[in-house]
């Protein structure tokens, strides 16, 4: 079950299907918050044609699992799913999905916000953007 909740994959995911899975895991859930990160076509004043995500296989999954475990321990929530795509990503495509199910919305919002911040901080995933001027490996993560 946990393996399904934490995934690093090249293929796209369905936000609806993943939300339904969270909803189905407990009847106590009264609020679900989704964070969906998508590929935008503009960054730091530059047009982006497409992007590529590299990752450290094994370590990236381990970090995401730790984030999920900490969120379940530190927030009053019921379940968390974290999925990150890697490889070539076209503009407008899905990149990352975090879904948090809780009894109440405030806990779900707080936990979801913490999860995406923590993902950016500790997960060995890297983004390369292709712009009309060339290729740039992104080092900042606002």
């Amino acid at each position: 079950m946990d393996q399904d909740r934490i995934r690093v994959q090249t293929e796209d995911f369905s936000t609806e299907e993943e939300t339904d899975k969270i909803k189905a895991c407990s009847k106590r859930i009264g609020g679900i918050v989704n964070f969906l990160g998508t590929a935008r076509d503009f960054s730091k004043g530059q047009e982006i044609n497409h992007m590529f995500f590299d990752h450290y296989p094994g370590m990236a999954e381990k970090r995401l699992a730790e984030i999920r475990e900490h969120a379940l321990k530190d927030y009053d929530i019921i379940e968390v799913t974290i999925i990150h795509r890697v490889g070539e990503i076209a503009i407008g495509d899905n990149i990352v999905l975090i879904i948090v199910g809780a009894e109440h919305r405030k806990d779900a919002f707080r936990a979801c916000s913490w999860c995406i911040d923590e993902l950016k901080r500790i997960t060995p995933i890297w983004k390369k953007e292709t712009t009309p001027e060339g290729i740039v490996w992104v080092e900042e993560h606002p």
Partner: peptide, 10 residues
């Protein structure tokens, strides 16, 4: 051993 540049996921 792995060399890890600044992360940029999400």
């Amino acid at each position: 051993i792995a060399f890890l540049p600044p992360f940029a996921g999400g």
